[in-house]
Amino acid sequence: MSEIYDIGYRHYDGPRLGAGHAARALTVHSLRGVFGLGRTARSKIMPFALGVVMLLPAVVSIALMALAKQRGIPYSGFAVMMQAVVAIFLASQAPTVVAPDLRHRVLPLYLSRPITVGQYVTAKVCAMTAAVFLIIAVPLVLMFVGELLVDLDEPLPTKEFAGSLVMALVLSLLLSAFGLAIASFTPRRGLGVASVIAVYLLTWAAVPILYATFQSTGDESGAAWAWLLNPFWLVDSVQSWLFGTPPHSIEGEYPSGPASALILVVLIAAALAALALRYRKAAAR
């Protein structure tokens, strides 16, 4: 016969780790949350479905290399080509990272622990950046591994591949900072999804309109700047400057590379500053 003993309250005298450990734990927890791990099955559908959609072109590309002995999608152009899917991923998942803690006022449970507001925001940005990066980088790596195995006659585009990974990380940071900032100002999750996708559609739709307008007035150099309105083409223009890849705009060249890089840095800083301000206000409540 078994008996259950009440062993009473036990004290904890093990190690108490610092804020760095806490920030890492929060990053991993948030990253798992983006992909719905440890959540209901329903919250896994969207991120994994989009992940599969991102993998399809990579699979087609490998098949093309194996059967027709020619490259499908260039590594440098993958993100621009798949931008709609990446944007939907950002819009659907960024609110899950920030909205529940704000809406359900979980933030005080964090801030009454060793972690600071700054570390909290940093962990959230890192988690979202890692998630977007995974979504873009996994197909890229798959394509590269495929190319290694297929062994085309051409030399391996290692530099282009490495460049595309670096720029994928930069793009992920830009998208995440903006996505989280927008989502944090709209704590209702549905509203967050809608506003992130609305901002993306605006940048996506404005480009051709502005481009055509400038071109019709004969201002070719002015028209080129229109591309930088969209985050994907902005990052592509920096890639083109840094790694010498061909522009993946629909038509025409990008304006100067250094200017694009500067705009990129300013935009990331602005989004992070907006996030910081939002959370300073939320923490004071």
Partner: peptide, 10 residues
């Protein structure tokens, strides 16, 4: 469990 880790527990 998550909040325990944020408090510094392994």
């Amino acid at each position: 469990v998550h909040l325990a880790r944020i408090s510094g527990l392994p």
